[in-house]
Computed example of a mutant assay.
Amino acid sequence: MRGLSCLVVRARPGNQSQGLLQAGSLIFRCALGRGGISANKREGDGATPLAAMRLVSGYFRDDHFAGARRTRLRMALIGPKLGWCEVPDDRNYNRPVEIPYGASHERMRRDDRLYDACLVLDWNIRPRRRGCGSAIFFHLAREGFTPTQGCVAVTAQTMRRLLPLLSSRTVLKVVR
Results as ranks from 00 to 15, higher is better:
R54N: 11
L55Q: 07
C132Q: 01
R72A: 15
F28S: 04
A66N: 10
R128I: 02
G79P: 04
D116V: 04
G35Y: 15
D112C: 11
Q16M: 09
G67E: 02
I125P: 00
F60E: 09
D89V: 05
R42G: 05
A52R: 15
H139A: 06
G79K: 07
C151M: 00
L121H: 04
G83T: 02
N15V: 13
F28K: 04
R110F: 00
R61I: 08
R29P: 04
L114A: 13
G35E: 12
E43C: 06
R34S: 12
D116W: 06
G131D: 07
L20E: 08
G46Q: 06
H105Y: 06
L26I: 14
C132M: 06
A153N: 00
A103G: 07
V120H: 09
E43R: 07
C30P: 05
R95M: 06
R61E: 05
R74F: 10
L21C: 08
A51Q: 15
H139D: 07
I37V: 14
Y115L: 10
R29V: 09
I78R: 12
M75W: 09
P96G: 06
M108R: 01
A141N: 00
G79Y: 05
E86L: 06
N94A: 09
L77M: 09
A117W: 02
N15E: 12
R107H: 08
R130F: 02
P127T: 11
R109G: 03
N124W: 04
H139C: 04
F60D: 13
P127C: 11
A51Y: 07
G133W: 03
R110D: 03
G24W: 11
R54E: 09
V56F: 05
L26P: 04
A47L: 08
R110A: 03
R129T: 01
